[in-house]
Amino acid sequence: MRNRLADVVTTALRLLDDWGLDSFSMRRLAAELGVAPSALYHHVASKQELLGHLAARIVGGVVVDDDVTGTCRRLREAMLQVRDGAEVVATATAFRLGISAFEAELARRTSPDVARTLLIYVVGHTQATQLHWQASGLGAIPADPDLDASFDSGLAIILAGWSRLAG
């Protein structure tokens, strides 16, 4: 096969942006790459494993540092850059695929429980934001201009609780 795993992931991310996760399939990916669907399984064992690679690529450029608020905002922004990016990361998180290094680094700077809580909050809020954007873009609901403020408020509540418990 002429494609490498990196090619498969790059093409999959482009298709995800074009079609969304609901319409993403291994058959569509294979057609885009010009190969038989079975050829994809030389690179990944399953669609879930591919989603883990997509999630790793989505969060891969996010710097985790001692500015936990900034780290969480950067994670949110990275997911917002890819259509259904938060859903991909949520799936990978549930299956424990592709983002364990990110979570481990965040845990090192906070604690395992705080890192897990932050990850669930950031991914969940971002997933709700992306769903809201899609629905408002179709005219099904009015746009909510307060999504960023809502995110920041919830993040502040979690971090204040962590500070209080740690202090």
Rank of each mutant, 00 (worst) to 15 (best):
V35E: 15
D152P: 11
V123N: 10
A128W: 02
V44S: 10
G60K: 00
A12Y: 10
V62D: 14
G139M: 03
S150W: 06
Q127A: 13
A160M: 12
G137W: 06
V44R: 03
L16R: 10
H125I: 12
D84L: 07
A156T: 11
R74I: 01
E105I: 02
T10Y: 03
A78D: 14
M1P: 14
L75P: 15
L54G: 03
S163V: 01
S46I: 02
G85L: 01
S23L: 12
T110G: 08
V89Q: 08
L97A: 12
L13C: 10
V68T: 15
A128R: 05
A107E: 14
A166N: 15
L5A: 12
R96D: 12
S38Q: 13
D152N: 14
V8S: 07
L29D: 07
T69D: 13
A55T: 00
W19K: 15
A45N: 06
V35A: 12
V63R: 12
G98H: 09
E77F: 04
T10M: 09
Q130R: 02
P142Q: 09
I99A: 08
L51R: 01
L97P: 04
P112C: 04
I157Y: 06
S150H: 09
V114R: 11
A140S: 06
P142I: 02
T10C: 07
H53Y: 15
V44M: 11
D67A: 10
L15T: 00
